[in-house]
Amino acid sequence: MNLALFDLDHTLLPLDSDHEWGEFLARTGAVDAASFRQANNEWFAQYQAGTLDPVKYLEFAFGILSRFPRPQLDEMHRQFMTEVIQPAILPQAVELVKKHLDAGDLVAIVTATNHYVTKPIAAHFGVQHLIGAMPELDDHGNITGKLLGTPTYGPGKITHTEAWLDKLGLNLAGFSRSYFYSDSQNDIPLLELVTDPIATNPNAKLLAHAQARGWPVINIFDGHAQ
């Protein structure tokens, strides 16, 4: 059994699910559109630049989610999946994941985007294991606005991936081959640890790093807007 890890946004999806979730909330009137879009765009720009404070961002994101009772939130997410995410999922992304699932590999999505937004997306790809930032829940399953543990961002992806594998009685060194697909320089710490780092639809910073290191580069979104 090999290990196959996937980033999500701009790797398997030709969009950023976190940013699009915010746009969906603004478009549907769930939040004040003007003020929220400004904040959402500022956070996204910081993420792209690699200057994001992940704890502050997640407190902001979870704070928005905490405004809604869980049944209402879940209904909004179902609409988000139908209107935004499912139409954006491309066959070649599904096939890339399926190749590893069919080979019997241990497959996980490791994303900086929070677990609530991404769990249904991982399920759509047929991936059981999801590593994402966890929101605190109250006794009724409502999101409180607080972050549980630490962010799954940058080096945090290593911490959380190793903890997940440890719970399974495994470790990275125990796999003959370990793959990680990512588009972003933020994921270089984990990319450096696997046997098969694959720059997938890489941004300019990751592309330069991948070329310098001799890593494979693939683009599964050729012909599609990113």
Results as ranks from 00 to 15, higher is better:
Arg78Cys: 06
Ala225Arg: 15
Asp9His: 00
Pro54Glu: 05
Ala163Cys: 03
Val97Glu: 03
Pro120Ile: 09
Trp164Ala: 05
Ala34Met: 09
Pro69Gln: 09
Ser184Phe: 02
Ser17Arg: 01
Pro71Val: 13
Asp183Glu: 14
Glu59Asn: 13
Leu130Arg: 02
Val127Thr: 06
Asn142Leu: 09
Pro202Cys: 02
Asp187Thr: 10
Ala45Gly: 13
Lys167Gly: 12
Ile188Asn: 00
Gly174Met: 01
Ile64Cys: 02
Asp9Met: 01
Met81Gly: 10
Asp139Pro: 11
Leu191Val: 10
Asp183Leu: 03
Tyr57Gln: 15
Glu20Trp: 05
Ala163Val: 01
Thr150Ala: 12
Met76Gln: 06
Ala93Cys: 06
His124Leu: 14
Gln86Gly: 00
Ala93Gly: 04
Asp53Pro: 13
Val194Pro: 12
Thr159Tyr: 01
Gly132Leu: 01
Ala93Ser: 10
Phe60Thr: 04
Phe175Met: 03
Val94Ala: 13
Gln48Pro: 00
Ser184Val: 08
Phe221Val: 06
Leu165Phe: 00
Met134Ile: 12
Ile198Phe: 02
Leu206Cys: 02
Leu130Met: 09
Trp215Thr: 06
Glu75Val: 10
Leu3His: 03
Asp7Tyr: 02
Pro202Ile: 01
Ser17Leu: 03
Asp74Pro: 04
Gln72Ile: 12
Leu206Gly: 00
Tyr179Ala: 06
Pro69Asn: 05
Gln79Met: 14
Gln86Leu: 14
Ala208Gly: 12
Lys98Glu: 14
Ala123Trp: 08
Pro135Ser: 06
Leu15Met: 15
Pro91Ala: 12
Glu42Tyr: 11
Ser35Pro: 10
Asp222Ser: 13
Lys205Arg: 15
Asn2Tyr: 07
Ala26Tyr: 07
Met1Arg: 11
Gln226Met: 15
Ser182Gly: 05
Glu192Phe: 00
Gln72Val: 13
Ser178Glu: 02
Asp32Ser: 11
Gln86Lys: 14
Gly214Tyr: 07
Ala212Arg: 08
Phe180Pro: 02
Leu12Met: 06
Lys205Tyr: 09
Asn142Asp: 13
Met76Glu: 02
Thr159Phe: 05
Leu193Ile: 05
Tyr47Asn: 04
His19Ser: 13
Gly104Tyr: 12
Thr118Cys: 12
Pro87Tyr: 10
Gly169Arg: 01
Ile158Leu: 05
Phe175His: 00
Trp43Val: 07
Asn203Phe: 10
Asn203Pro: 09
Val217Tyr: 06
Val107Tyr: 07
Thr28Cys: 11
Asn2Gln: 11
Arg177Gln: 13
Asp105His: 15
Ser178Phe: 08
Ile85Arg: 04
Arg177Met: 12
Val55Arg: 15
Lys167His: 12
Gln48Asn: 11
His19Phe: 15
Asn186His: 09
Met81Tyr: 08
Phe175Glu: 00
